[in-house]
Amino acid sequence: MPAPVDAPGERLQKILAEQGLGSRREIEAWIRIGRVRVNGQVAKLGDRITPLDRVRVDGQEIRRRPRREEDTQIIAYHKPEGEMVTRRDPEGRPTVFRHLPRPKTGRWIAVGRLDINTSGLILFTTDGELANRLMHPSRELEREYAVRILGQVPDGTLDRLTSGIALEDGPAHFDAVSARGGTGANTWYHVVLKEGRNREVRRLWEAADCQVSRLIRVRYGNVELGRRLFPGNWRPLLDDERKLLLSLAGMESQPHKPRLRSAAARAWQGGR
């Protein structure tokens, strides 16, 4: 049986996330539908495990590996419009995973999502605990979007968007809105917010009677999309980007022997 709640050990979903099986949210869903067993028993949310417990997912035993910061892979991907942020789409539409490299260990976990009509930056990592922290509202990581609005924006709209507008799932607001120019019926704005509710940027503008004609995520935390990362392409994070992102997630790099950066990272930095 799994270790009781007051026993030593760590939460089951946290351990499985650290092994790169998925985000905490994904793994919690697996537990709810009975895909996870501990010592032969169907697991429950809230279960804690120790290194002595045997865990299986879909019948396959999970062998725990010690978590090492240097093993965590993180990449930035420029999602084009028309791609789905899912591993398999029942309608056969293209997904973001078809363009990603094969990870050294584990599998890629998307840090948040973008809808099919939104393009721009998505981070991927092989560490589910890191993905969970980067997405969790308590971290208040900024997401910045470039937004093209069709038509004129009424006076007072920017103040409404930053002070707060009632949506069907509760009040929401942008932390910052700035005009970025444009001509004719199309004007560009940059907006910043610290949460990732479903289609929140579009819904806020629509609630302010404005029509979004294009939406691009240009920054997540300290990582920027940049001009050199073209749609459908990925890049590894630079060393400084990686270090700061881990710090923002509360997973600061632990001191370890210096190591050479990957060839991909060196090539990217050299071509900047």
Rank of each mutant, 00 (worst) to 15 (best):
T105K: 10
R107K: 03
R107M: 11
I109K: 00
I109Y: 09
I109L: 10
A110W: 13
V111C: 04
V111P: 09
V111H: 03
G112V: 14
D115C: 08
N117L: 04
T118Y: 12
T118K: 07
T118I: 03
T118F: 03
S119R: 09
S119H: 13
G120R: 03
G120D: 12
L121F: 00
L121V: 00
L123W: 05
F124L: 09
T125D: 12
T126D: 08
D127Y: 11
D127C: 05
G128C: 02
E129Q: 11
E129G: 11
A131P: 10
A131I: 15
R133P: 11
R133V: 03
L134Y: 05
L134M: 11
M135N: 12
M135R: 06
P137N: 04
P137I: 02
P137Q: 03
S138I: 14
R139D: 09
E140R: 13
E140N: 08
L141Q: 10
L141A: 09
E142T: 03
E142W: 09
E142R: 05
R143D: 09
R143Q: 13
R143F: 06
R143H: 00
A146F: 14
A146I: 15
V147L: 07
D155I: 13
T157S: 06
T157P: 01
T157Q: 11
L158A: 06
D159V: 04
D159P: 09
L161D: 05
T162V: 13
T162F: 02
S163C: 04
S163M: 14
A166P: 06
A166R: 15
E168K: 12
G170D: 04
G170Y: 13
G170L: 14
P171A: 01
A172K: 14
H173S: 10
H173E: 06
F174H: 00
F174N: 08
D175W: 07
D175R: 06
A179H: 12
R180S: 04
R180L: 10
G182E: 01
T183A: 15
A185Q: 02
A185L: 02
N186I: 15
T187V: 12
T187H: 15
T187Q: 15
W188S: 02
H190S: 13
V191D: 09
V191C: 04
V191T: 11
V191N: 14
V192I: 10
L193E: 00
E195I: 00
E195A: 03
E195F: 00
E195S: 06
N198K: 14
R199Q: 07
R199P: 02
V201T: 12
V201F: 01
R203N: 03
R203S: 01
R203H: 03
L204H: 05
L204W: 03
W205L: 11
W205K: 11
E206F: 05
E206Q: 11
E206I: 12
A207V: 09
A207S: 06
C210Q: 10
Q211L: 13
S213I: 11
S213Q: 13
L215T: 09
L215S: 05
I216L: 00
V218F: 14
R219F: 08
Y220W: 12
G221C: 08
N222F: 06
G226N: 01
R227I: 05
R228K: 02
L229Q: 07
L229Y: 00
P231L: 12
